[in-house]
């Protein structure tokens, strides 16, 4: 089942001064359960594409459909709510709320969704256990390592039970061990719970673990290949 579909997606920055064509007629489909990496050199448009799919930015031309809903034409407030209910985000810089504990960071998004307190508590504990941080749930981000923070970010992204998770350079700030650990968790969730992951990356370690690798060059898709799952 297709979750994400883009139609001739174009994005031009500074159209009136010095136009920069970040995306050129990008058409891509992501099916449920995919573990997809967007790769490409800096400026190739992978983060821009991720932002369009995530509804964080609007395309200059073209459309983005998530589960059949066209989010590119949604009003800002509707798009925010759509993101809350359907999309999980993992950022390169973790972006946890520094004044909240790991558990509160995970629980926060469910509170925004207006879920029941008991359900929130149970799910928070479960998710933190899944990312191997059951014993650090009361720690604040400053008390966690980069790898641990990123695992909290993954748990937070999963908390809202999104249709898919977008991760922008999730391992860029992590050492090899932390990166591998994070990838193990993400891959396990993808395999066991059929959670869809789309990430932009430069990191060969991530690319090697992806089952689908989309290569972008100059704002367009250059290659779209399925990797041998046995390779990982």
């Amino acid at each position: 089942m297709t979750i994400v579909r883009t139609e001739k997606l174009c994005k031009v920055y500074n159209p009136d001064t010095v136009p920069v064509h970040a995306l050129n007629n990008v058409c891509i489909e992501v099916d449920e359960g995919e573990f997809t990496a967007l790769r490409g050199p800096s400026g190739s448009g992978k983060t821009t594409l991720l932002n369009m799919i995530g509804g964080l930015d609007k395309p200059t031309e073209g459309k983005v459909f998530i589960d059949g809903h066209e989010i590119s034409s949604m009003k800002d407030s509707k798009r925010i709510d759509f993101r809350l209910q359907n999309i999980g985000f993992v950022f390169q810089h973790y972006n946890l709320i520094p004044v909240f504990t790991a558990a509160e960071n995970v629980a926060f998004i469910m509170m925004l969704q207006g879920r029941d307190k008991q359900e929130i508590r149970k799910r928070t504990d479960k998710l933190l256990d899944q990312v191997g941080l059951g014993d650090r749930k009361d720690a604040r981000p400053a008390q966690l390592s980069g790898g641990q923070q990123q695992r909290v970010a993954v748990a937070r992204a999963l908390a809202s039970e999104p249709r898919f998770i977008l991760a922008d350079e999730p391992t860029a700030n992590l050492d090899t061990e932390a990166a591998m650990n994070l990838l193990d968790i993400m891959e396990k969730m993808n395999r066991e719970q059929n959670i869809t992951f789309v990430f932009s990356t430069h990191d060969q370690r991530v690319i090697d673990r992806a089952r689908r690798v989309v290569t972008m060059v100059d704002g367009a898709i250059d290659q779209d290949e399925i990797q041998d799952p046995d390779k990982t």
Binding site: D76, S77, I80, G88, I109, L112
Partner: peptide
Amino acid sequence: MREIGMLLSIGMSRRR
């Protein structure tokens, strides 16, 4: 700025 950007990204409404 970045933190508020993150809050908006993950779905916290501008009203909130």
